[in-house]
């Protein structure tokens, strides 16, 4: 399970999502910032589909799993409405790890096709992104 690390395919996918939300400027906390944006964009449709509490528990679980791999997430919390709080810092990997777990859980619960459909609806450009160039930059 996720305890033994994230599967590389999902990690790639998370990386893609982050690259789509990366700020133009090369900020030191770009990874964290992008993760915040991705989570925020997922929050709306997922809360509609499965309620605020549903999304919140999903995000909290992803955060629990991610904290074990990325100590930079230690101060992060999920607010009552399902948004993230205390997400800052410069750890380059933390954001990717969090989003990867979030997407990973979604895949576990609703399956890959439905997950991809949902992501593609939010990020229509998703299927066209080249992960490799992005991957090298932030790993």
């Amino acid at each position: 399970m996720n305890r033994n690390g994230i599967n590389p395919k999902i990690r790639d996918l998370a990386q893609k999502l982050l690259s789509l939300e990366s700020p133009a400027k090369n900020l030191s906390d770009a990874n964290i910032f992008a993760a915040l944006m991705v989570s925020e964009k997922l929050r709306r449709p997922l809360s509609t589909l499965a309620g605020t509490a549903g999304f919140r528990s999903l995000l909290m679980r992803a955060l629990t799993l991610a904290k074990r791999e990325a100590p930079g997430l230690d101060g992060v919390q999920v607010k009552e409405d399902g948004s993230l709080e205390g997400l800052n810092g410069e750890e380059t990997e933390a954001g990717t790890v969090l989003i990867a777990h979030l997407v990973g859980l979604l895949e576990t619960f609703i399956g890959e096709p439905l997950t991809l459909r949902l992501l593609n609806e939010i990020w229509p450009k998703l299927s066209g992104v080249d992960t490799n160039s992005e991957g090298k930059e932030s790993i």
Binding site: T48, G54, S57, L58
Partner: peptide
């Protein structure tokens, strides 16, 4: 308008909460 039936959302929510709980329990069991 996203005219979701509140029931459907509530049901999804319950299912998702259950799944997350199951995920946690599986880990503990493992």
């Amino acid at each position: 308008t996203t005219s979701f039936h509140q029931d459907a959302t509530a049901m999804n929510q319950a299912l998702l909460l259950g799944s997350v709980r199951q995920h946690e329990l599986t880990e503990v069991a493992e």
